[in-house]
């Protein structure tokens, strides 16, 4: 009888650990290293922003020299690039938010397990 109880208890613990694991790994690893490091988050957002702008401006300059329409496509590219930069930043921020929410949920489950 004692054995049965212990087995059931173990079964429950394994189940809890599995849910925790699924929650932690959904959408990429525990992600703990990244969320904890403010500088990494900042750098990530800056790079996303600069990359969008760089592609917009670079594409504008290239098309300008190809069609000989300087500087109009550069201006258009700059504006669209800024839009893309913001789209990138918003997407990154949403991703970070979702990750943080998942981590919170995983932590709550872990605390429930202990209590």
């Amino acid at each position: 009888m004692v054995n049965d109880d212990r087995l059931q208890d173990l079964g429950q613990r394994v189940k809890a650990a599995r849910t925790r694991r699924v929650l932690q790994t959904q959408g990429g690893g525990s992600g703990r290293g990244r969320a904890a490091n403010g500088m990494a988050v900042g750098l990530r957002i800056v790079i996303e922003m600069v990359a969008g702008l760089a592609v917009g401006v670079g594409g504008g300059l290239f098309l300008d020299s190809y069609f000989e329409t300087a500087p109009f496509l550069l201006i258009v590219g700059f504006i669209l690039g800024s839009g893309a930069a913001f789209a990138n930043v918003i997407r990154t921020a949403r991703d970070l938010d979702a990750r943080a929410a998942r981590e919170r949920a995983a932590r709550e489950i872990a605390e429930d397990d202990k209590g």
């Binding site: 750098l43 996303e48 969008g52 592609v55 594409g59 990138n88 997407r91």
Partner: peptide, 21 residues
């Protein structure tokens, strides 16, 4: 066009992140 530029900026941000770090 914005989504296109955003898509094209992926390899740039991917490579710059690793190289810069």
């Amino acid at each position: 066009p914005i989504e296109l530029i955003s898509y094209l900026s992926r390899p740039v941000s991917l490579s710059v992140r690793l190289f810069a770090n």
